[in-house]
């Protein structure tokens, strides 16, 4: 059952994203000094009043990442990083990342140069379908990305995304889906049906 989008309340962009850190000084240095993001807000609190959970006292602090968004961190005083929150090596953990937007190739190259000048390992730019990106990591090993938009996504992109995901969910339901060729072949049937409905 698909819920009507017309009745859904709207979102208006990112307020903040947040992750835990056990490297307070290095994190402040990286985001405030190396990236140059202003430290704009900090909360300090005695747990959340959740004594039964033994919730640690903590700091929650925010760096301005533009367009009224912030990137935030929690620092839990006197705690050790649980093993399950250590960022694993490998590509799968990189899926959990923050990507910031810049408005031009000039800005993207300026960020690449700034990072390199500050001794941060940064990738060459990669051109994807609709964005061009550079990649790097913070002192917590959290993956970061800075991207510029190459073109706006338009209605055909959204229609295509819908067909892709509808196909993929049906394949997932079979329990026998193992590779992308299966998706591409199954999707073709959806595209043919779509074309029959939209001959122009």
């Amino acid at each position: 059952m698909t819920l009507s989008l017309q009745s859904a309340p709207r979102l208006h962009g990112v307020d903040h994203t947040a992750r835990p850190t056990w490297k307070l000084r290095e994190t402040v240095h990286f985001y405030r000094d190396i990236l140059g993001l202003p430290l704009v807000h900090a909360i300090t609190a005695k747990g959340w009043g959740r004594e039964k959970e033994e919730h640690a006292d903590f700091l929650h602090f925010f760096f301005d990442s533009g367009n009224e968004s912030t990137i935030a961190f929690f620092y839990y005083i006197g705690t050790q990083q649980p093993p399950e929150l250590v960022v694993p090596r490998g590509y799968m953990a990189m899926a959990n990342h923050t990507a910031w937007r810049v408005e031009s190739e000039t800005e993207l190259l300026a960020w690449q140069k700034r990072l390199e000048d500050q001794g941060v390992r940064v990738s060459q730019s990669v051109t994807h379908e609709v964005i061009e990106s550079i990649y790097f990591r913070d002192p917590n090993f959290y993956p970061l990305e800075i991207a510029r938009t190459l073109r706006d996504v338009e209605t055909p992109d959204a229609v295509d995304a819908g067909l892709t995901l509808e196909t993929a969910m049906r394949l997932e339901d079979t329990g026998r889906w193992s590779n992308i060729e299966q998706l591409w072949r199954a999707k073709a049937e959806h595209v043919i049906a779509h074309q029959e409905l939209h001959p122009a």
């Binding site: 990669v126 051109t127 994807h128 379908e129 295509d160 892709t164 060729e181 591409w184 072949r185 999707k187 073709a188 049937e189 959806h190 595209v191 043919i192």
Partner: peptide, 14 residues
């Protein structure tokens, strides 16, 4: 480039 190339059948394959 490779980032686009390896997705070039994304619209469907017969």
């Amino acid at each position: 480039n490779e980032a686009v190339w390896f997705g070039c059948l994304t619209a469907g394959l017969c």
